[in-house]
Design a protein around this nucleic acid. Structure first.
Lengths: 333, 333
DNA sequence: TTGTACGCGTTATCAT
DNA sequence: ATGATAACGCGTACAA
């Protein structure tokens, strides 16, 4: 049973309010009583109870961070970004791992708001615009997403732009039969996928579109999907992957099927995780500034928290093509 | 201003206590009033305020998790382990990233206990046994460490055993001049390092001991240290690294210096992160069950939390040698 | 079955 | 400069 202000007050022969004053350095206090109080605090090992403080102030100095999977190499850096700016602001962050389950995401949102967090950051949500708006209505919300629900601050990673760039890159290298593998549900309304399709269509390659769907962004899934794709569509000379792990799996699949990368099949990734510069061949991919993403999301959230109103800020985060070896940009025959 | 129990009570024409009863499903309540209350709850969008609840119960249903760096590939899986068992128990976890700074670790500990977390898990601490004991004295504490401070539950990763195994492996392959690279301060009292030295000594190779110190467990640091080591000690035919990223950096250094791995220089890692099975050559390393580690730490913590007393449980977590290519176990000439 | 009154540890408003 | 007292939102004991 830790000591309370009351205990300190008794020991120092002062009122509770006086203790409160020295703890928070507010108001004028005579030097002798201040010292008496501080001594009592020290002797009793008194530490303020933030829960009680929060009940009064209505501020918990904590936020929630919801992500699908911390083991997905995309997220650690982004979490780092969030955590570091939260630390600067003296906020604590609840980490919530949904394992990509909508149900769990909803549970976490409820749990967090019951715990009176002052805001929530969601990255890689499974919720729709409607649901996000509802959440943003009652609590500051900062998300990374393609759409821009009302009441929420959002960071657009320019992922469609990026997908267009990669696809153009492959077309320029002479590819006409290009496959697409994604870990998000295949759906022409997905900005990435539609960017991919439209780029092909823009070059008169509409008929060559071929897609595969992975359950999660892992090497194994990439291997599985690419194997299927390559077996069913022998004309394929390139595979665009929406995630580096998928791409690395795809490269393995090519190697297993005896199709050389990049000479016979070109492969591209997305995100530029550490693995991308260590795979063989080195992966051509889109670089996404993940730490920056986390920092931005956090800063936007704190902006809304401190200002007290939901401006629904929107920021674009550019991505950048990193040409390495897996497309044979220079050697393709 | 969210609705409170009082608001609900007024709306439903009942006392606060009655609302409390239906919210917590306790006591007998007549069906009509229960319905009235539930309707009021729904209409007002009432959500219980966990902060107030915590103040009364003294339980916050949250724990703290302190790690050095989430971007170090060792930690995401371990964090996953902790988070998933916390989720099962309906606990929230505060993620605290110290960036390996003692100062920050101490700040986090204070902040967490002020926030009344019910326990703290620390992995990769910079604190000494004394400091950890003090923390464990006033709050359930679960750590992964080499020593076993009082009042704390600890998981021993059998890392000295592992280091011995790797070293033996190299000696058996005929190596006589073996270097050692670690990201922890070089100190003969470090269990890993002393296991390494003693194994060499046990085989009459005491004179060949050579060590390098890395600042952090990264590929770049491994590259830097291994370069120095190889230049200063040309007789080296093997390098033991206390971390896979270091080992991968070391391999790069060998390649850069024109020394083939594993034919001319053997390299071993530690931890068996994903990278280890993707590097070239594939890395021989010690597998550490990281998710299991997180789960264990969490379970031990919850055990102490629910039982209410500090038994200071101690558990050993075995590691396992994974022989891949980087030592040329079969091809060495 | 339902309500009253008090306490949790802190901050804030007014006095003194 | 210091103190008494009432909140904050909820649970619990004890009544009714």
């Amino acid at each position: 049973m830790p000591a309370t202000m009351r205990d300190v007050a008794r020991k120092a022969n002062v009122s509770i309010k006086t203790v409160s004053r020295v703890v928070n350095n507010q108001g004028e206090i005579s030097e002798p009583t201040r010292l008496r109080v501080q001594e009592a605090i020290h002797e009793l090992g008194y530490r303020p109870n933030v829960v009680a403080r929060s009940l009064v102030s209505g501020k918990t100095h904590s936020i929630g961070l919801i992500i699908p999977q911390i083991t997905d190499p995309f997220f650690p850096e982004m979490v780092l970004g969030v955590e570091s700016v939260a630390y600067q602001r003296q906020f604590s962050v609840f980490l919530c791992n949904t394992e990509s389950q909508v149900q769990r995401e909803l549970e976490y949102i409820d749990s967090l708001s019951e715990k009176q967090v002052e805001g929530i950051i969601i990255c890689g949500t499974s919720l729709d615009e409607e649901q996000l708006s509802q959440v943003g209505e009652r609590i500051p919300l900062s998300i990374s997403a393609a759409s821009s629900p009302q009441h929420t601050a959002v960071v657009h990673i320019q992922v469609d732009e990026g997908m267009r760039t990669v696809t153009e890159h492959l077309i320029q290298l002479g590819h006409k039969h290009i496959g697409y593998i994604s870990d998000t549900e295949l759906d022409k309304h997905q900005p990435r996928q539609s960017a991919f399709c439209e780029t092909l269509r823009g070059h008169g390659l509409a008929d060559s579109i071929v897609e595969g769907c992975a359950a999660v962004n892992t090497i194994d899934e990439g291997y599985r999907c690419a194997s299927n794709l390559l077996r069913q569509h022998t004309a394929l000379t390139a595979i665009v992957c929406n995630g580096d792990p998928l791409a690395i799996g795809a490269i393995h699949a090519c190697q297993y099927l005896g199709r050389r990368v990049p000479q016979e099949v070109a492969v591209t990734g997305f995100d530029d995780i550490d693995l991308a510069s260590l795979s063989h061949p080195f992966l051509t991919t889109m670089h996404v500034p993940r730490r920056k993403l986390g920092e931005l999301l956090a800063e936007m959230l704190f902006e809304e928290i401190s200002s007290g109103n939901r401006h629904g800020l929107i920021v674009d985060l550019p991505v950048e093509l990193v040409v390495r070896e897996s497309c044979g940009a220079r050697e393709r025959t």
